[in-house]
């Protein structure tokens, strides 16, 4: 049985300190459903991910906090320990090193720390890791490009995003529903519209 009181408290505490850490967590579903959450964290300064805002899908298992939360990047990111395809994260504290004293916020902080200290020797994405080890400048360039392309914080309002996508040739109804489904992220909406 999941400890809803704890999750609620965690969300409250995390969103209270959002100005300081830049990390926020919101429930994805309707009120009172805390199994699907969306975390947001800023790319660490001094890394190729600087300036980006990354979304992370969080699924809380039944046994939380005695089981680790399932986290993966919803925003595409070029990193040796994060799958460029699925967004899966290779981080020990999300697997066998989990501890119930960790919270969603501390887990997201660890993910943020992982962005600044890649471990290419224990990769999740072999292609990225190989590039990181053999040709670091190219890796850095790619990571920077992916950040600006997929993780740019959009300053546009929802209407501007709709207009932009409609101008690309998508029907307005589909644009609106897709944007809503991905939480207002225009890049993700574009990807979804293109694939489906």
């Amino acid at each position: 049985m999941m400890d809803f009181a704890r999750v609620q408290k965690e969300l409250h505490d995390c969103n209270k300190g959002v100005d300081e850490s830049g990390i926020s967590i919101k429930p994805k579903g309707e009120d009172g459903n805390f199994t699907l959450l969306l975390g947001t964290l800023p790319g660490p300064i001094g890394t190729p991910y600087e300036g980006g805002v990354f979304n992370i899908d969080i699924i809380l298992p039944e046994g939380y906090p005695f089981e680790p939360p399932k986290m993966k990047f919803a925003t595409k990111v070029w990193h040796p320990n994060i799958s460029s395809q699925s967004g899966a994260i290779c981080l020990d504290i999300l697997k066998d090193q989990w501890s119930p004293a960790l919270t969603l916020k501390t887990a997201l902080l660890s993910v943020q720390a992982l962005l600044s200290t890649p471990e290419p020797d224990d990769p999740q994405d072999a292609v990225v890791a190989q590039q990181y080890l053999r040709d670091y400048p190219t890796f850095e360039g790619t990571a920077r490009y992916w950040t600006s392309a997929f993780a740019r914080p959009s300053s546009l309002g929802i209407e501007d995003k709709v207009q932009k996508l409609v101008e690309m040739g998508f029907p307005e109804g589909a644009v609106r529903s897709t944007l809503e489904a991905v939480g207002g992220d225009e890049n993700m909406a574009l990807e979804k519209l293109c694939s489906g």
């Binding site: 697997k95 066998d96 090193q97 501890s99 004293a101």
Partner: peptide, 28 residues
């Protein structure tokens, strides 16, 4: 109840009994 719950978690979830489950959740 919390610490017992944690120590009684099934090791099947990939967590090692001695290094993780029987360790202090804070200082390990």
């Amino acid at each position: 109840s919390c610490i017992r719950n944690w120590r009684n978690s099934s090791p099947a979830s990939g967590m090692d009994v001695n290094s993780t489950l029987r360790a202090c959740p804070i200082c390990r």
